[in-house]
Nucleic acid binder design. Structure first.
Lengths: 209, 209
DNA sequence: TCCAACCAGAGACTCCCAGTCTCGTAATCG
DNA sequence: CGATTACGAGACTGGGAGTCTCTGGTTGGA
């Protein structure tokens, strides 16, 4: 019998938050500005989200959800594509959203937990599947620790986003994968047949933007 | 002819900042509390440091400076020690200082630049020396890109500190180094003689806290 | 038709904290 | 001794997160 939630308002809040933060940069954006840009009362935001960071997390998740597109067959190329996607996200305007969230997560344990569960872990699932498939096919070492391998592959990109000591772009993803590959690949192709074309080719080294 | 800076005050400010942040956690600590704990006027803090973050950065740097102790000869063991030291720092109370600084650096570009120059880069210098020596001795691949290799080795520890998806401890450092090693080591010992005892031994794998 | 329940936008309000300003005092040097 | 400057103490400003209040609108049931 009561009035129900306005889905348009929800969407306008998320869109405004995303646009403002990506343009102006993190922390320079206030909740009042988001509310004004969305044409929404401040209380409407706090009715549906517990904090400003929760809004930003939802805005970020909305961006990256709808992409279960097909991956290449080879483990190397599949990982390369996934790392390139992550690098592109980090380098895009939307990288600002992630930086803001990680910054606030250092202070707010609840946010940290949400961020890990709803964004960070979610990002890793497909990578874990790819690596597991690679192990099953004998392209990767049989004793590979998937979680540590994911850290190895993804962490340098994260670090560049958060520290800014180097750019985060697809070329960086390529170089990092090429560098790490020998640590993951199966040195002794036990019964496994061909894994020739999957290995990094020479031109993957040494020519960056 | 004027009164000079009180070095005791400087030290008390840094000590109080460190203690409070390590105990209470980042952002829960205000400048007023630091000043009160140090028995110092607030203005004295702002006379010598441009911001709260600058105080914390100095407090952090003071901790990690005086440790140019000798490293083992083997490249593997030297890197292992350095990674373990970093892991221990991250896991200690002082890891809070770093988290706070990285969080604020996402918002404050000047702080980000200072943090990179005065802490982050400084940390990497010795690692770079170790790797370069390893290349020179033929233990590591001749075409190794030192900067990327440092990212590979250190970034997973940083990521654990900042995201918190896994613990940051010496055992983790060991496992990450053992995992990455094949990506760095020289597969073709060209003219290089023995590099036997430097390689990870079997017990370095698979037994964590 | 009317009413209860709850949503909405608008904006005033409280609380907190980084950073500034002011004061009276105490060193230091010429 | 007097000019100069640091010092501790604490009042003050500005801005932003989150809350409260008000008025109005929309829904579904009696």
């Amino acid at each position: 019998m009561p009035r129900t939630r306005d889905p348009g308002a929800r969407q306008r809040v998320l869109d405004s938050a995303r646009d403002l933060i990506c343009d102006v940069g993190p922390r320079a954006v206030t909740v009042d500005e988001i509310a004004a840009a969305a044409g929404v009362g401040k209380q409407t935001i706090y009715r549906w989200w517990p904090s400003k960071s929760a809004v930003i997390l939802d805005a970020l998740i909305e961006l990256t959800d709808p992409a279960p597109s097909r991956l290449p067959d080879g483990t190397y190329e599949a990982m390369r594509l996934q790392m390139r996607r992550m690098a592109a996200l980090f380098a895009s305007r939307n990288g600002q959203l992630i930086r803001e969230l990680v910054a606030n997560a250092q202070v707010d344990p609840n946010l940290a937990e949400d961020f890990r569960r709803r964004f960070f872990a979610h990002q890793r699932v497909r990578g874990a599947e790819t690596l597991a498939a690679g192990v099953a096919r004998g392209e990767l070492r049989a004793d590979l620790d998937i979680d540590h391998a994911l850290d190895l592959l993804y962490a340098p990109l994260w670090l560049r986003l958060l520290i800014g000591h180097r750019p985060t772009n697809p070329a960086a993803a390529d170089r990092l994968l090429a560098l790490s590959w020998p640590a993951l690949a199966n040195d002794n192709p036990v019964p496994a047949p061909r894994r020739q074309s999957m290995k990094p080719s020479a031109h993957d080294h040494r020519h960056l933007p």
